[in-house]
Write a protein that binds this DNA or RNA. Structure first.
Lengths: 148, 148
DNA sequence: TCCAAAATCACCCCTTTGGGTGACGCGCGG
DNA sequence: CCGCGCGTCACCCAAAGGGGTGATTTTGGA
């Protein structure tokens, strides 16, 4: 900004000097005042426009438009809810496998325990979730952010 | 833009007239030319700056920045997959209710049909999805973007 | 008007699931 | 050392789910 003012003043001074020269050398005629005024007006108007453009060049209005992008929603387990419900890690594991659509028998084979054990875990987790069916348990588990 | 030029000209004319008045009424003194030039320079410079600002006012730079927002992902049903699997609207409806954790009996009460009908629909939808259990059907339905 | 798809309902049979109870071992902290 | 929580397993029973077949009605379009 200060630089602009200095430049402005310098150019003005040079112009005045130039005009003085012109006035004393070959434009000392009648109506020279009008010509002089017109010249000054034109030059300074141009200078003003240039200066105005200069001043507002960096005055860019940055508009940040937020765009919702379907990003991979990172799943964060709600540990507090998990603890408040008293769901053990094993029970949660069984619930996850239930959510994958596996039967008790398949789950038993997956985690190397008997089907009866899987039934016990699932029964407990249903009790803690207040679910009557495994589909309901899955729905509740997802709602409560216990499983992805 | 044309308006600006006209305004500019008009103001310039008025200024000239004003200056003429000043010159002939009470500023007919020595060095009046310098004063005259200074005035013209100052006024036109101001005018130029104003004009420059005016012209560049609408030169806004819009920066679009994409921001990942964990927004509620709007569910869009995959109609093509639905058709390719030959799943009827009614069957889809039943699948949705299954996904909500309802039993066949509850679904029957909800849609005002017999439990046997619900069983038929669910059986068909399981067949079309290649699911053996309702939990698996739900999981597949969500994967295939048939249900939210 | 007639056909085909969709929707509806019923019955049988078997599997799976859910609920309840009881029991055993293991590890940890009082 | 004893209790407690957790994980494990077993058995029983009732309810729900799933597969198959067959049938009727509704409905939308050729």
């Amino acid at each position: 900004m200060r630089k602009h003012v200095l430049l402005y003043g310098l150019l003005g001074g040079l112009l005045i000097a130039g005009l003085k020269l012109i006035e004393y050398r070959w434009l000392v005629v009648e109506h020279s005042v009008e010509i002089y005024g017109g010249l000054v007006a034109a030059v300074f108007a141009g200078l003003g426009i240039w200066l105005g453009l200069r001043l507002t060049r960096q005055a860019e209005t940055v508009v940040v438009r937020e765009v919702v992008v379907a990003g991979p929603v990172t799943f964060v387990r709600d540990q507090r809810k998990l603890e408040s419900l008293g769901i053990t890690p094993r029970e949660l594991e069984i619930l996850e496998l239930i959510a994958e659509g596996l039967s008790n028998k398949e789950i038993a084979a997956r985690v190397y325990v008997s089907e009866n054990t899987v039934k016990t875990h699932s029964s407990r987790v249903f009790l803690k979730l207040g679910a009557r069916r495994r589909t309901q348990a899955v729905q509740l588990g997802k709602e409560l952010r216990l499983i992805p």
